[in-house]
Design a protein around this nucleic acid. Structure first.
Lengths: 385, 385
DNA sequence: GCTCAATAATTTCCTTCGTCAAGTATTGAT
DNA sequence: ATCAATACTTGACGAAGGAAATTATTGAGC
């Protein structure tokens, strides 16, 4: 974080993170929150203020009896530094520039003719240049780039071990992206990146445990337990899409059957809608159209899909008991069709107090994936990379 | 831990825990393991040796080229202190005295006519007296008692919030047990206690994440993620028994249907075996008998149950990816009947590398529950209670 | 047997971090 | 104006752990 410093006092990181996620907050409140003395907070905050990451807000008016000296809350200086985030998919690069509060300032995207690593890296370089040299002139105040890729990614080494969608094997993404862009690069799995973003800047703020479920072509899940992202000892975690909820359910491409994804994945929905509508070339959008116009059979497809997602979420709630769960469907807002079924399926299967777990269900603008990527580079700054 | 000390340097706790779980180990190896300097280990170990908890073993012969000074590994002095553990069930108290290595030295049990809290506490006092004043004369070297209770328990306050089997509501178990026994009492949920025991002294040793699945009347699961026991934000976690794996499955007492427990719980197995054998008063043991003598229908009941357990375990592996999973059936060793089906059901549903997760399946002597209770009091000592 | 390289453990010194307690700043109420 | 209440700062202190020199103990090579 600081020039030439690789690690930084834990209190400094803790203060930075807390101000970042818990908005303007006084030193005394921070001390309580972080279980530190107020003196320690003062000391930890100083270098952050000196470096321009934090600022002191004007004193707030106090309430209550007695009164006392008003707090001068610490706040993030959002424009102290900017971060590029890029989500890499098989046919597109989506890029954003975010400020330190993870607010998107500029966005851009590029279609990819092929997902070949060389091509992607060239296009990535151009996309980053477009973003940084375009309006706003962020170049001078940007040092970091976060990349989000689906598949098996090692954030430590920046290596993409295997990405089925991109057909990548052992691509040294960080190294190559750093060479091309000149920025400090952080690489992370896309769902994990989105989970971190939601945990730091979204609805997961303050939650000690938290789950994010993504519904789209695949169905994924990012998990935060004990304040830390769960990674899985064998590299597998959050595979909510491949939990079996119906022993007699349809075959899944994973080799099992009755998986959530085999019932509620976009592909599964299209397949079922084609069957019951008799239109073999029907698309997902067509299915949505039909359902919205009251096609009973297609509505039933969405209902079953929603129920399956609810079942998967209930499994998460019953097993790890997160403080809250966010369900976010990518692409268009079509998922409002099965939202009530997700809730019903969840409620029916949640055990005891697990049913109290608040559920947020909302569409996910595609740009969010890129914002997630930017967030991991913010996290890298805070951790003092 | 130390007289009049409530908290203790983290390094001391870390060294104590590592020696406890990772057997005799040299200071240098500890330093590597704990990411400390060797000097820090020397300092942290000294008070533990002075207090008699650790001892230095004779130097071991060294191998390899060059050689060097032989290590003098640190080892636990197992008989430096003893711990009572009692598992409280609705009709029985099972108690043990363990040494510091969690080896059972004495055990005893008492039938309970009623599970009324007053009665239980009286009986508990007598049981502890029997254990400590019987052969071995452990009284003088025993200061701690661990209690394991099923249901919703607060280990911080020692309060049993709600225990369905015992029909207890808000019983101040720690306070009352301390008054009766004169020992420092730790209260914990039974499955969690067993999970800690397995994580510290059993097959979970060294695992950063770990799951213990208990199969009996109910089907439960203790989860360790990031080295810490998962508790669930709303007090619910590890409810593997109420994951739904069959949308058309049998009704479960929890209100949902197709739960693992509704297919593989002891009650469910008896119910199904009665149906297909036509013997309305058949017991669990009878069902085992029939299956072992080749009754095809009853074998099928066990096969389905095993498959359901496998499905639950696969859900755990897919979601949190523990480094290993132990499945332990309580009571008699009848569960060998469906062991292969558990493995098959798991393998079929585990996604990708999750299938690599090693599975141990073995019967669970009932005394193990009490040993788990003793383990939480050992943990309390180490944490410096 | 002597020397040397290798490894283990200890010791000493020093830095860092954070607490504690005293002191300063700023407000509303009386 | 004074006082109580609250926020923040400061500086002395202590505890914890790192770095590196020192001591301890072995086997290998001569």
């Amino acid at each position: 974080m600081f020039p030439e410093a690789d690690a930084v006092a834990p209190a400094v990181t803790a203060v930075f993170t807390a101000v970042l996620t818990e908005g303007p907050i006084s030193r005394v409140a921070l001390a309580r929150r972080l279980d530190l003395s107020s003196g320690a907070v003062t000391k930890a905050a100083r270098p952050l203020i000196d470096l321009g990451y934090l600022e002191e807000l004007a004193a707030t008016e106090r309430t209550g009896p007695g009164a006392g000296r008003p707090a001068s809350p610490l706040a993030i200086r959002a424009d102290s530094e900017f971060f590029v985030g890029v989500k890499i998919t098989a046919d597109e690069l989506i890029g954003v520039v975010c400020d330190l509060r993870a607010q998107v300032r500029v966005s851009a995207h590029r279609r990819l003719p092929v997902a070949d690593a060389d091509q992607v890296l060239t296009q990535l370089g151009e996309l980053v240049d477009d973003l940084l040299d375009g309006p706003g002139d962020y170049r001078a105040r940007t040092r970091r780039l976060g990349l989000a890729v689906s598949g098996d990614v090692d954030p430590i080494t920046g290596l993409v071990r295997y990405s089925p969608f991109l057909r990548w094997h052992d691509v040294a993404l960080r190294e190559r992206a750093e060479k091309i862009t000149g920025l400090a690069v952080t690489v992370e799995n896309d769902v994990k990146a989105l989970t971190i973003a939601e945990h730091w800047f979204g609805e997961g703020v303050g939650a000690e445990s938290f789950a994010l479920v993504t519904v789209g072509a695949g169905i994924g899940c990012g998990l935060v337990v004990g304040g830390r992202l769960v990674s899985g000892a064998h590299g597998v975690a959050g595979e909510i899409g491949h939990i079996g909820i119906d022993v007699d359910g349809p075959d899944c491409h994973c080799g099992s059957r009755g998986c959530v994804e085999a019932i509620a994945g976009a592909g599964a929905i299209v397949r079922q809608a084609r069957l019951c509508s008799g239109r073999p070339s029907l698309t997902f959008e067509d299915a949505v159209e039909l359902a919205r116009h009251g096609d009973v059979a297609v509505c039933e497809v969405f209902a079953r899909a929603g129920d399956a997602i609810g079942a998967g979420i209930a499994a998460v709630a019953n097993l790890v008991g997160p403080a809250r769960i966010v369900v976010s469907g990518e692409g268009l807002a079509a998922y409002d069709l099965f939202e009530p079924h997700i809730r019903a399926g969840f409620q029916r299967r949640a055990f005891g107090a697990a049913a109290d777990c608040p559920l947020s269900i909302r569409p996910l603008p595609f740009e969010e994936w890129a914002r997630g990527a930017a967030t991991v580079s913010i996290k890298a700054l805070v951790a003092a990379g």
